[in-house]
């Protein structure tokens, strides 16, 4: 029995239910297969490129401690071997996170490390490193009537008019308990994303189901001196540079080899998108100020 999903525009068939993903109708020929099977400890002939991962040709092997080994092949398949005591349910968090991020890289997608939310048919992406507060800010905007497009992997592709579109990642928000409490989302809180961790699925009130044009990218920064609170536009050359830095695992993208046509494609897309640095305190108690500033900025830009 296969479980079917639509993730970042790709149809996915999986041997087991993916926790936190929204099930869809099965595709005749799924783009991506996810299955449980044996996976070697290392890649034969592969250069060991990381402390817990190897890459060889179209194969990428990732070892997640005490959880599973993930063999990600040619952008089409994720094979999972569970370590002793781990369950397929535990592996879901990695399938939807790191493993799918690597798979999207293998397919040459431009993937931002960010959450995306939409209103009035247009989306904004909120980028930043792990722990920067992307999902928390996205959740706060969802409380204000925005629709969730993606949680932390934001794959861009060119739309019909050349503007980039974001395809929904078909999953719920993931929030740490402190953020759940700060946003008063206790009643929407679902299961733990992964056993032993105080991070939970939270179902947003509204979810985007269609590809949504991306209008702006906000890069989160903490307002530590000499930086002060505010939203500043980035000039195009800086934005190009910033886009590389805010990609999902940019170092990996480089090691996989960045194809020239993709660089040209991202430059073309960026011409349609405005990029801003959003500098604000990381303090959860001051999140409402950030939300107000962002909403005002959006209204102003729309006017």
């Amino acid at each position: 029995m296969a479980y079917s999903y639509r993730i970042s525009g790709l149809t996915v068939a999986c041997d087991f239910p993916l926790a936190g993903a929204v099930a869809t109708e099965p595709a005749v020929t799924p783009d991506v297969r996810v299955r449980l099977a044996d996976v070697p400890q290392t890649l034969e002939g592969g250069a060991a490129l990381g402390p817990n991962w190897d890459m060889f040709g179209e194969d990428f092997l990732l070892r997640a401690p005490r959880l599973a080994r993930f063999l990600i092949r040619g952008g089409r398949e994720i094979v999972i071997a569970l370590e002793d005591g781990a369950t397929a349910r535990d592996a879901s968090a990695y399938v939807l996170g790191t493993a799918f991020g690597i798979l999207l890289h293998q397919r040459g997608a431009l993937v931002l490390h960010g959450a995306a939310v939409a209103r009035g048919g247009e989306a904004i992406a909120i980028c930043g490193h792990s722990g920067a507060g992307k999902s928390t800010l996205a959740a706060a905007l969802c409380r204000r009537g925005w629709a969730l497009v993606t949680d932390d992997l934001c794959a861009l592709s060119p739309g019909d008019d050349g503007r980039p579109v974001i395809r929904p990642d078909g999953r719920q928000l993931k929030l740490w308990q402190e953020a759940v409490e700060a946003l008063d989302l206790g009643e929407q809180r679902g299961e733990a994303v992964l056993a032993r961790f105080e991070k939970y699925f939270v179902a947003p009130a509204e979810v985007a189901t269609e590809a949504t044009p991306l209008r702006a990218i906000y890069v989160l920064r903490e307002s530590r001196p000499p930086l002060t609170d505010g939203i500043e536009p980035l000039p195009l050359p800086d934005a190009m540079h910033m886009l590389d830095r805010e990609a999902y695992r940019p170092g990996l993208r480089l090691k996989m080899g960045v194809r020239p046509e993709l660089v040209a494609q991202s430059a073309g897309m960026l011409a349609h998108v405005r990029m801003f640095e959003l500098t604000r305190p990381r303090d959860l108690a001051r999140l409402p100020e950030t939300v107000e500033a962002l909403l005002a900025h959006w209204e102003l830009a729309a006017a």
């Binding site: 997640a64 722990g131 991070k199």
Partner: peptide
């Protein structure tokens, strides 16, 4: 945290 994730490709929160 950032350097750890760049080196291991793992989501350090998990």
């Amino acid at each position: 945290r950032h350097e750890f994730e760049a080196a291991t490709q793992l989501d350090s929160g998990f």
